[in-house]
């Protein structure tokens, strides 16, 4: 596990970062490095330069806006889990942060890194897609906003172009929503066999609105829209949640690996969706 030669740059400003990333085709920004460095050591990637952005204060913030919370790309999983603003306004994401990998990764890894890496088995995408999060991308020309749902393109592929960097994730506040992130894993710290993020707004005894985000069930995170439609306007019951799980299972498209067959993983989408819904409702 020894990486090939690479250049290493510590820019002093955002402008310098963007300039460098635009100029150097194979340069990669380095934040927490907990995916990048292992890939480098396995010689799966061979970047020309690592551009250390860790010191950029303008990427390290949590802003409590009127209708949104903005989370800088360098906010770590540990911070996501413990930050008061996020706990209060986006508890779903805090909950997801608590089960990302292990403590070492949570101390170092960042939300910007997860979003940019676009690993299909990552935890946050289920929540981000359920929350209708916006990815704010910075380039030398300014910023552009892309909904998370279209930002993620495919396995390890995003909408980022050369010279661009994720600046922040903008998340609409959903104060009246119950929430739950449920991850199925073989052991603590493992990649999700399936991850389900659920947001539910009740109106009396009826479900007024519901969002179900699924991760690790295909090349990118998806919403279980049919399941959501089935639930909306109805009174939750065991039977209804079963059916919702069934619908979520239908839209999932996992691949077989050592963690389980396609069949097993699909069934687990059903089990975990129901579990997440039930536990959100019990909150």
């Amino acid at each position: 596990m020894y990486p090939p030669k690479f250049g290493y740059v510590i820019p002093e400003s955002m402008d310098e970062v963007l300039e460098f990333l635009e100029k150097e085709q194979d340069a990669r920004p380095l934040a927490g490095g907990h995916s990048l460095i292992p890939m480098l050591k396995l010689r799966i990637i061979r970047p020309s330069y690592l551009v250390n952005i860790r010191g950029l204060k303008e990427l390290h913030f949590v802003n409590d806006g009127k209708d949104t919370v903005s989370i800088g790309a360098l906010v770590t999983h540990f911070e996501l889990n413990t930050n008061d603003i996020i706990n209060k306004n986006v508890p779903l994401l805090s909950e997801a942060a608590s089960v990302v990998a292990d403590p070492q990764v949570r101390n170092m890894g960042t939300i910007g890194g997860v979003v940019s890496n676009s690993d299909p088995a990552a935890d946050y995408p289920a929540s981000l897609i359920a929350l209708d999060a916006i990815v704010r991308i910075r380039n030398r020309g300014g910023v552009r906003d892309v909904p998370f749902s279209s930002f993620q393109k495919d396995v390890f592929t995003t909408d980022l172009k050369q010279g661009e960097l994720v600046q922040e994730i903008v998340i609409p506040k959903l104060p009246a929503y119950k929430y739950r992130y449920r991850k199925l894993e073989r052991r603590a710290g493992d990649y999700a066999i399936v991850g389900v993020a659920v947001l539910i707004k009740m109106n009396g005894e009826e479900i007024e609105d519901v969002r179900i985000g699924l991760t690790s069930v295909g090349p990118k995170a998806i919403r279980a829209k049919e399941a959501e439609e089935l639930l909306k306007g109805n009174k939750p019951s065991d039977e209804l949640l079963d059916k919702a799980g069934e619908e979520a299972m239908k839209v999932s498209n996992p691949t077989a690996d050592i963690r389980g067959s396609v069949e097993y993983k699909k069934k687990m989408v059903k089990v975990m969706t129901k579990r997440a819904l039930k536990e959100a409702l019990e909150r």
Partner: peptide
């Protein structure tokens, strides 16, 4: 050790 799962303190 990501693929080959050994139990952790949590298990």
């Amino acid at each position: 050790l990501g693929d080959y799962a050994i139990p952790t303190a949590v298990e």
